[in-house]
Each structure stands twice: as structure tokens, then as C-alpha cells.
Write a protein that binds this DNA or RNA. Structure first.
Lengths: 340, 340
DNA sequence: CCAGCACTCTACAACGTTGTACCCCAGTGG
DNA sequence: CCACTGGGGTACAACGTTGTAGAGTGCTGG
């Protein structure tokens, strides 16, 4: 069925190796031979069998990307950026969804399916420091996310603490003092929620504002509905606040909806700050002021780092920690000058 | 470096074929032998080389999914559903982004990278009927989208015309008569925009409502900003309307934002209807009434159809057209009983 | 007691490609 | 005239797996 080098070789009247040489741009080939081979390739519509090539070379030209869920905008945008960067490097991307489930994440790391790729970009969400040993795998891997630090592999991520601190400082600078938080995770030590909450506390402390536990809204997941529910609870609690820091954009948008439905004006009565700078942060009503944590850079850097590891293996030295720059994306939901 | 069947065979003291037989659950193996082999596998941490297996079997266990862009929520949710369905079928998914660009779509169809997969689920956006010949490829493929009908391959899609007609009829039933449309494509004959607009017109006609060109907002892309811009134009135009039909949710959400910013109440002054039933349709303010076009079914069916084609090839008979059921997802932005 | 069978296992070839070794030839310098 | 060089090409093995054919067992039934 499929056309192979043998078929091309027969038609061109040369050996299969010569055809292979033509395809791989081997220099020492007579123009006449090259032409005959190219004609045969065109005539038969030959396409190299990448599986065979992979077997021989040990490289597949594919990398895997594991994310919790593409339905979450953050990860969809991450995947888009990774695929784009990979394509620029001549790689294709195999996308896996783990659901953010620890067991599925661990299972993925042991899956033979990864043998079909040259390496893995792994955005972990369910694993914890206790699982760090599982990251010691025999294929190139780059870790994303903030569940594990100091692991045995390259890690590309964002400055969660500093960025969150900057976010809260932005709110403080605009005159806000009672800042509610949506999306905290109870008893969590590692993970984005804990780090961002820590940055928030640091900012409060730096400005002599006492931390008020009653302003913290806890959720398990970071879906929009969790942000909405958490805000409802805060309102029911009856505590006063003049700003809300959603630990991600999705939470912030969910919370903002409830705030507005309750009759509060954003940003006049309550300023809202998000985290992630999703596409949609620019299109909510009002548009969402948020932290751009450098996701594009993270995607590019993750691919570049993985490509390096694939090329040079362990020789590249000890695992590196690469941190993206962040910035506050100023929009309508929270403005630098305190609103009237 | 990597452990192979040979290594396992040597340790277990059997031939490599026996090890292969153990792995592939070949029945006639003595328990003692099986145990020794399994012990050796565990001891060495053997993982089958899928590339080699692919070369031998001609199957890779991977399928490709080509979408315009994962940053577009519709396609992110589609990809999530396809990956989930594929995983259930024991397949992994290689995701490609075409940008909705015709040339890149055509190039993709000829790309040797597809040789690494067993088939392709192709969501075309840039191609047109003129390119139908390019769909005649020698690998299994399932087409999604509405750019091409009657092509030489299986096609899974939604009932655009009927669903859009139902959407407009829903608005009419709730007492709306002047229904603006956002997202039409000028001079388009095929494609979602044209089909949905056609359904809209059919509904108007069926109810004796004249079609008013001045109520149609044209855009090129279907991003949120296009919906916002288009709505701004409609408002500037000064035409009166009591409902807006966004040809997709993203457009509808963008338009809704502008509507509200202009002081109009949704749904009291203007009802808003979307199309797609994205996750976020449930979390806007107000939540978006929209058409659920059966995306999950489409994803599942596309995978199932592709799997069938992979298994039985051309014997499966002529190309099929498979259409999903749709339903109106009733939320706040447009309600069945006319709002006060 | 032996043909016949089922079971258990092995040797070998193949999937389609590329790396290695080699061969042949023409031209060159001594 | 002969080694030597290098261009142009070939044959063969190998990547790690599975299909095919077949070789030994031991057991069964006639």
C-alpha cells in the first residue's frame, strides 16, 4: 500500500540508500542521479515513514504536554503557546489531560505512551513534594506549575509570591485597605494558591495592614463557579471590603459577577484584581485588571529547555529553575488612582 | 541505555519472543516461565518501545487533531472532549494549530508528520469547496466544521441551520421582533456564519417578519472584540432592536458587554442569544442563553468514526454525514416569556 | 506402542529507515 | 606506471518489536 524507499529505488534504478541520501541532503550525489530519484519520489508520491525513522534514530520529533484540563482557559492558552513554540522548533505536541489528579499524574509519568515522544512538559497540579521521587524519570522532562520545587528536573514557572505581592500593593496604592481574597486553599503549603496568598500577606505586612482571616474565601477548585460561590459566602458573612483579589482570573470573574449582582459597583465600590491575564480578562465588564505572569515566556522557555535537554541530555548540568517576569495589566476593574 | 526485550530475555533465560508473548498475554505459557519473565521485567523496569511496535504493526496508537486555535474557547473545549474520548479508546492525541489559514490547512494534509498518527480529525476553517480534492488523502480522516460538505470523507458536524432557526424562533416566541445579528460574514456561502444566518432568515420568514439588512453586523473573525465592535457599530447606526443573536457565544458576550455599557438592560431591553454553549456562557452577567450544538457528541462521534475507519478502512462504505442534536440552553440573557 | 494433538517455546524474518563499511572509478602526483 | 585521493554509489546490518514456522515436549486414544 504505502510507498517505501524500495519502491522509489526500483523506479529510479538506484539503491535504497541512495534514495535515502537524496532525501537527507547528502552532498555527494550526481545531479543526474538526484534528478532521477526526485522524479521517482514525485511520481510515486513517496512520504518518509517517520515511525521507521524514529526507530532508527531514537528521536520521534514529538513532545508530550500534560495539563490538568484544556477546558480551563489558563491551560488552553498555555497549550496554544507550547504548540506554537514547538512547531517553530520542528516538533509536534501530544497533549494529555490529567484532570489535576495525583494518581493520574503519577500514572502518566510511568506510561509507555511517553515512549512515543522525546520528552515531556509536565504541568502538575495534583502531586506534592512527597511525590518528588516520581519525577526522577529516564526521559527529558520540564516541570511547570508550583506543586514541587527543588525537584530533580528543570522547572519553568512564574514568580507567584512577588507577583501576588505586587498585585496587592497595587490595590493598597490605590487606597484600598480591606482586601478580600478569593480562591485560597485551606492548609495548603505548596501550590499557586498558597504562594499567592503568601505574597498577599507580605504586601499587607509591608504596609502595616493587619491580616484579617474573615476576608479570605476558600475554594477547592478554581472554576468560575467557585469564585462566584466564594464571593457569595463573603457577602453573607457581612464583612466589609473595598477590594477583591482573585487568585486567578477565572475566580475573579466569577466573584465580580456576584459582586455586581449584589448591587456593588466595580471598581467604584470594590476593586477587583485577577491573576493570569487570560484573553478574556480584556473583555469582561468591566475589563479585569490582573497580573500577567509571563505565560508566553514560560511556554517558549519550557520548549527551549526541553529541546536542550533532549539534545544534550544530562551533560547540561544540574536542574535549573527558570522564572518569568511579571507585570500588572491595568484595566478597568482596579485603577491606580482610587475611584471616586 | 534503554531496556529491551533482549535484556529481559537474557535475565529471564528465555527467548525474546517468549517475553513478547508474556507482554501480549499469549495464553500458552507455563506459569513458572511467566513468573520468571515478569520478575525480570519488574527488575529491569522494562517498558515496551512503542515506536518499534508501531513500525511492526503499522499502528501508532495516536491520532491527530487539527484545530484553528486552542486560544478560542470553542476549540479548546472541542480538543478537551476529543482527547477524553480518544483516551477512552486507548489513543493519544497530537494537536496541531492551523490558525484557520487555508494554506496551512492544505499543507497539514500533506505533511509527513501525519505518518506518526493513525488518522486525523480535521476541523477546517480556511479551506473551501474548491479545495475538496485535497481531502482525498490516503489516511483515515474525519472532517469537522462547515466549510466543506459532500466531500470524499466522513463528516461530523452540527445542524447549523436548524439550530440557528430554533434560536431565532425562541427569540420570536418571547415577543422579540427586531433581532440584530452579530458575526455575519460578507458574501459567504459556506461556513458556520452563512448557515446560521440562513437559519435566522428562515425563522424570520416563517413568522412573516421582514429581513432587515440594517440589523446585520458583519465581522471577519469571531473573537470577543469583534462582537463588541460590531455591536458598537449597530448602536452608532441608530437602528432599533430588541434582541441580538450572536452567531457564537464569544461574539454574543462581546456584544452584551457593549450593550450593557450603553445603558441597556439584558434581557429587559435587549435579549441576547448565543451559539455554542461554552462553559463561560453559564457565568457571564447575565448568564447567556445559547444553543448547545452537541459538541460533546461531535467529539465522541468523530473519535468513534475515525476508530472505525482505522479498523476497517475503505470497507466501511461511502463517506457518512453525521449530525448532532441541538437544544436551546435557557439562561438569563433571553427568557421564554417576554421580560417586563 | 505409536500417531496425533495440544502445549510451550524458539529461531528467523520482517516492518522502513539510516549508519557503517566497502567497492569502483577517474583523476592526481610522484 | 603505480599508489593515493575522493566522489559516487552499493550491500548489509541494525533500531526493537511481532508474525510465522517449526521444534521439542508430554499426554491421549486407538
Amino acid at each position: 500500500m504505502a510507498v517505501t524507499l524500495h519502491d522509489v529505488a526500483r523506479v529510479a534504478g538506484v539503491s535504497i540508500k541512495t534514495v535515502s541520501n537524496v532525501i537527507n541532503a547528502y552532498p555527494h550525489i550526481r545531479p543526474a542521479t538526484r534528478e532521477r530519484v526526485e522524479a521517482a519520489i514525485a511520481e510515486l508520491g513517496y512520504v518518509p515513514n517517520l515511525t521507521a525513522r524514529s526507530l532508527k534514530s531514537g528521536r520521534t520529533g514529538a513532545i508530550a504536554l500534560a495539563v490538568p484540563e484544556l477546558g480551563l482557559s489558563y491551560f488552553a492558552e498555555l497549550a496554544a503557546a507550547v504548540i506554537e513554540a514547538a512547531e517553530a522548533a520542528g516538533l509536534v505536541v501530544l497533549v494529555e489531560q490529567t484532570g489535576g489528579d495525583r494518581d493520574r499524574e503519577l500514572e502518566l509519568l510511568r506510561s509507555p505512551r511517553l515512549k512515543m515522544t522525546d520528552g515531556l512538559i509536565f504541568s502538575a497540579l495534583g502531586m506534592s513534594e512527597a511525590d518528588v521521587a516520581s519525577l526522577r524519570v529516564d526521559f527529558p522532562m520540564v516541570l511547570l506549575g508550583e506543586r514541587i520545587f527543588g525537584g530533580p528536573i528543570d522547572h519553568v514557572t512564574m514568580r507567584n509570591v512577588e507577583a501576588a505581592r505586587a498585585a496587592t500593593e497595587y490595590l493598597i496604592a490605590s487606597g484600598r485597605r480591606r482586601i478580600a481574597v478569593v480562591g485560597a486553599h485551606e492548609d495548603e503549603i505548596v501550590g499557586s494558591a498558597a504562594l499567592r496568598l503568601q505574597g498577599h500577606r507580605e504586601a499587607l505586612e509591608a504596609h502595616g495592614i493587619p491580616f484579617d482571616e474573615s476576608l479570605i474565601g476558600y475554594t477547592t477548585l478554581w472554576h468560575r463557579s467557585n469564585g462566584a460561590r466564594s464571593m457569595t459566602e463573603l457577602l453573607d458573612r457581612g464583612v466589609a471590603f473595598d477590594a477583591v483579589f482573585g487568585l486567578n482570573d477565572t475566580l475573579a470573574l466569577g466573584a465580580m459577577r456576584v459582586l455586581q449582582a449584589s448591587g456593588r459597583r466595580v471598581p467604584e465600590d470594590v476593586a477587583v484584581m485577577g491573576f493570569d491575564d487570560l484573553d478574556e480578562a480584556g473583555y469582561s465588564i468591566p475589563s479585569l485588571t490582573t497580573v500577567d505572569p509571563g505565560q508566553k515566556w514560560i511556554a517558549k522557555t519550557a520548549v527551549a529547555t526541553l529541546v536542550e535537554r533532549i539534545a544534550s541530555g544530562a551533560e547540561l548540568g544540574p536542574p535549573r529553575l527558570l522564572l518569568a517576569d511579571f507585570r500588572i495589566a491595568e484595566r478597568e476593574s482596579a485603577v491606580a488612582a482610587p475611584a471616586a
